[in-house]
Design a protein around this nucleic acid. Structure first.
Lengths: 126, 126
DNA sequence: TTTGTATATACCTTGACACGTATATGCTCT
DNA sequence: AGAGCATATACGTGTCAAGGTATATACAAA
């Protein structure tokens, strides 16, 4: 469980994170809203906490959990290398996504082909 | 292996995807650059292809793989709900949470006490 | 104190998946 | 035809993580 990607690979953990977007929550609240057993919630929260996705403060017997930005930035940073690429494939559809991204550098040398592909035969494989 | 998140949770798969950012590659090229056995590359490529991350065309005996944008957009869409939250500074985060301060329907109106970090407690090793 | 509540952890089982090895398939060239 | 290369797949194995149940810890109120 080293990487942030493994952390967010778990659906229940993503559900917890999405819950926390709106506001901080106690374990019991998440348990009810997500309808999962309490130990499950606690265990996932532990993973999320150790990965830096959330932090908690104590309020009497409760623990209030809230998001922390770090790991999200990490995911975003990884995604950034592909962002240039998929906005290049843009149709009119995802134009709105483009506006939240920086403008990529113009394609420098996108096709560095090592294979000679002399016999490029179009294959209707799709 | 339903979700895109499980797909990118695998380090070797992320390595393959990063390789393909620069240009399309054949299996053999990836095998060399990533120094992993050919069956491993092929198997990961299969997963990536079925998840829509890559597509391939046939060039004689080779298969040239290249990225496809769809799943990346999906990851980005998920990340979007957290973006407003992390892109601001921690300062803004605190204000945000402060503003939210959503007080749930506590069943018994417990002592509303704000304490400090009680996140990790040193655990006796057995 | 005792009881009740909130959360964390220990133990066990199960299932998924990544890997290695071997082999199959498909193509090219001689 | 054959040999040789490039890629895919089948099979067996080990590891690791998620779930369930039970219990431990911490706090609160009686």
């Amino acid at each position: 469980m080293e990487s942030v990607f493994e952390i967010i690979a778990e659906p229940n953990r993503r559900a917890i994170l999405s819950l926390l977007v709106s506001s901080q929550q106690s374990v019991g609240e998440m348990e009810r809203q997500l309808r999962m057993p309490q130990p499950t919630v606690s265990k996932h929260l532990r993973v999320l906490r150790e990965a830096g996705f959330v932090e908690s403060t104590v309020d009497a017997q409760r623990r209030l959990y809230r998001l922390k930005p770090g790991p999200f930035r990490e995911v975003d940073a990884w995604l950034a290398q592909f962002r240039r690429f998929w906005s290049a494939h843009v149709d009119a559809l995802e134009r709105h996504l483009d506006r939240m991204n920086h403008q990529p550098q113009g394609s420098s040398t996108p096709t560095k082909r090592k294979t000679k592909e002399g016999t490029t035969r179009p294959k209707p494989r799709t």
